[in-house]
Every structure is written in structure tokens, then in C-alpha cells.
Write a protein that binds this DNA or RNA. Structure first.
Lengths: 240, 240
DNA sequence: AACAGACTTGACCAACCAGTCAAGATTGTT
DNA sequence: AACAATCTTGACTGGTTGGTCAAGTCTGTT
């Protein structure tokens, strides 16, 4: 593991401090992702960041404190992508955009996704409050949006909660299980494969919620009919 | 954590040994799932299993050896479920049965799923060979089956690989992220919710691959036309 | 130049952990 | 009953880890 470079030595005191903290957080994110919280050592993080161990403790009081900051940073990035689930857009555009952006995040922030997954798998000891407040609020609001789509007959009457879990699971799988995917693929996915995977996921999900036939490749699809436009039968979940 | 009971003191020498080993493996699976390999301690496993720590080392030489046995046991169970992807059945039956069984496994073997996920996330240091041999073979054979379905026009022309990943991701999410799901749900999923989630996942996937309209609720669906029966357009992945 | 506060770091320590061991208890066999 | 093999377990150990600390260095200010 080579040091993650080091573009220090410029800027004000506060800027330099922020930059060093970011360097440490990047290294920590990677080590926590690869070894888990218990398996990660401050020494390993020190080596990846290119700083002596004692220096880490100058910026972050404890291993747990550093870990907490890593997880909080990831959650913030996730929330940013979550906003692409535009409440105003059509179902096609909203779902396609959200899935696409989450797939991109899985590609660019593999380590972060793993840390989040690991944290949740171990019972979310650090970020339980985030789950109960921010994440629950976000989830509830998107479920309400999806229910409105269903009421308007824009998509099939599926239970929104399981749809959201499906999107989370599928997109994050490409980060969390990247090693398995790359083993089966005999190498990292290339640009075309990422594009194809994203398209396939979008296609299955959109068709899966009843937006199959024509489908909006980009923006500006079926905007107009706001009642009873959904064709199919599919009596399933109980939605108002 | 209470000891996992203890129904010992019966059977032959070999049977008792096997039973104690199973008790230890169960405890280890749980502790590894909850704390990760690095965070788990032999002492914790000893307490959960109700045995003194030195006794664990009598049955399993090392922590890593015990961990390896835990992971191998999980993989075996997984392969069993994987066989429900009957190559002879129709797409509807095969997919529905496979998804249903994987969802059931996520409910009954939460800890095992987490250990597997954790192992893969950390680069599969222990079971890399399983990924390269058994898992790759299984995956290739199922991809071939799906391609045949596509060629026969039974399902939409999606890239089979991404479909398989989607099924794995979605079903295992209910085990690996059970804590997050239960937090958002304010309690464990009940029977009806598991049933609804399974139905929703089956519905989205089946419709997503073009088996939407009528759909086979149980067995014996559209068996007959073996060429060009698929209706929709959807030019997407390149399949022979 | 002199001073103060911010930063750096090698050396150190108490706590903890996987694994060992030897003495004893239990069980099957003759 | 006597013996051997298997199993049990408290006490111990060498190595590792998170965290500390004091002696320094650097940087901005007057």
C-alpha cells in the first residue's frame, strides 16, 4: 500500500488542517473497508496515509472517533445522491436518475459503501440515530412519492418499501461485492460493462414497476395524463 | 448473550463430538456475523457456546480454522438453495422458486449471510478458490440457461449476469441489512411482510424480464411455444 | 529576534488477545 | 478393577494494539 500522495504545504492553517484530516479520513475509509473496524489498526491507517501513528491521534482522539467521522462523511455523500430522486419528476426519470447515480456512487465510492454496509451489518452501533431520524424521514418521504405514482396509475401497485430496498441492494452490491463480481468477471468491469449493468438494472426495475413498453431513454417522457394511465392488472400490495 | 442451550450427553463418541462442533460453529457464526472476523474474540465465542475457551481450541486448532469451517458450511447451504434454480423448469417457475428460496434463507440464516458478505467484502482471503471454481461454474451454467430462455424468446434479452447479481443482492439484503430494515420497520418483519416482500421481489423481477402480464402464480405456466414467444421490443444486451 | 501556539514524532505502557500446557476428570475396553 | 484414550479447564505467555507523553520542530506575530 503506497502513501496516498500528499499535496500539502499550501494554504492557510485551517486549510492545511482540513487537508490533512481528509488525507487521514481517506486512508481510514480504505482500511476500515478492507479490514473491518475490528481488523483495522491505527498503524495500518498511519501507513496508508503516510503519517506517523501518533500524528493520527493528534487529529482524531480515538479510533472510534475516526471511524465515526468516516461513517458520517459517507452518509452525507449518500444523502446528496438521494436528492436526485426528484419528487417533481416523472417515475421514469426519477427512478432512472436515482439508480444511475447510485450505480455511479458504487463505482466511485466502493470503500465508503463497504464501511456503511459493515456498520449496518454489525448492528449500526455508531449511527443508529441516523437510521432512526434522517434515513427514516428520507425513506418515508420517497415512499409517499411512490404511493402517489401508484394512486395516479402511473406505475403498478407494488409496495414502495420493497422497491426501495431492491434499488439499494442492487446498486450497492456492485460496491460491496465488487471483489466477487471482479473474480467472476476475471477483472474489473470496464466502462461498457458498467453502462450495460446500469441499463439492465434500470430496465428490469422500470419494467418491473410497469413502465416497460416504450420507456423514457432520457427526460421528457409521458407527462400529461395524471390519472388512471397505468394499464396492467397486478393486484398485490395494499396501497391507498 | 445466553448460552445456546446444550443438548449433550447422548449418543456415541463421534456423535457427541459432532454435536459439540456444531454448537461451537453456531456460536462462532453468530459472533463472526456480529463483530466481524477481526472484532470477534475466541472468548466471546466461548461465552456464547457455553464452553471454556481452551475447549474451543481442542476442537478447532485456530481462530482462522474455525472461521474457515464457518464459511465453508455457509457456502454448502447456499449451494443447496442454488439447485432450486432447476434447469428444466420454465423461467417463471425457476426464477420464482429460486428467489423464494433465497428469501427464506435470508430469514433463517441471517448470520451466515452476514459472514459470507463480510468475507467477500474483505477480499475473500479465505474462500477465494471457492469463488474461482464452484461459484464460477454454477454462475456460468445458470447464465447459459438464461441465454437459452432468451434465444427461445421466453424472456426479454437482458444480460443474464446482471440479473443474477440483482437476485443475489436483493435477497441477501434482507439478511445483511436486517438491522436497517428492522429499524425502518420499527421491529422485525412479520410473516405477512416477508410474504409480501418475496412476492414484490418476484413480481418486479418477473415483470422486469418480460414475464409480466399473466404470470404463473405456481407451477405449470406457459409450456409449449419454444421459439419467438416473447412479445416485447427492448433491444439491449448482446446475446447470441 | 524573540516568543507563543500549533504541529510532529519516537519511545513507551497498560490492556487485551490467540494460543499453550499440564494436571485432572470422564469414558470405553479388557 | 485396571488401564488407555479422549476430553476438560484454569492458569499462563508472547505478541499486538490503542492510546500517551515529553521532547522536539515549525510558523505566524510583535
Amino acid at each position: 500500500m503506497p502513501p496516498s500522495d500528499g499535496a500539502e504545504k499550501t494554504g492557510t492553517r485551517a486549510e492545511m488542517r482540513e487537508e490533512i484530516e481528509r488525507t487521514i479520513l481517506d486512508a481510514a475509509e480504505r482500511v476500515f473497508a478492507e479490514a473491518g473496524f475490528g481488523g483495522a489498526t491505527m498503524q495500518a491507517i498511519a501507513e496508508v496515509s503516510g503519517l506517523p501513528k501518533a500524528n493520527l491521534h493528534y487529529y482524531f482522539a480515538s479510533k472510534e472517533g475516526l471511524y465515526r467521522r468516516v461513517v458520517e462523511r459517507i452518509f452525507t455523500i449518500w444523502l446528496g445522491a438521494a436528492d436526485s430522486f426528484e419528487t417533481s419528476a416523472s417515475p421514469e426519470v426519477a427512478l432512472r436518475q436515482y439508480i444511475t447515480r447510485k450505480m455511479a456512487l458504487s463505482r466511485s465510492h466502493r470503500h465508503g459503501s463497504k464501511v456503511w454496509a459493515s456498520e449496518v451489518m454489525h448492528g449500526a452501533p455508531i449511527i443508529q440515530d441516523y437510521l432512526e431520524t434522517t434515513l427514516r424521514d428520507w425513506t418515508d418521504s420517497r415512499i409517499a412519492v411512490i404511493r402517489r405514482w401508484i394512486s395516479a396509475g402511473q406505475i403498478a401497485p407494488i409496495e414502495p418499501r420493497w422497491l426501495l430496498y431492491m434499488i439499494w441492494a442492487t446498486t450497492q452490491h456492485y460496491a460491496d461485492f465488487a471483489h466477487q463480481i471482479e473474480t467472476l468477471n476475471q477483472g474489473p468491469l470496464d466502462d461498457a460493462q458498467w453502462q450495460q449493468a446500469t441499463d439492465t438494472v434500470c430496465g428490469i426495475i422500470l419494467r418491473g414497476v410497469g413502465l416497460g413498453t416504450a420507456a423514457a431513454q432520457t427526460q421528457g417522457a409521458s407527462q400529461g395524463a395524471s390519472q388512471g394511465a397505468f394499464p396492467g392488472p397486478l393486484p398485490q400490495a395494499g396501497a391507498a
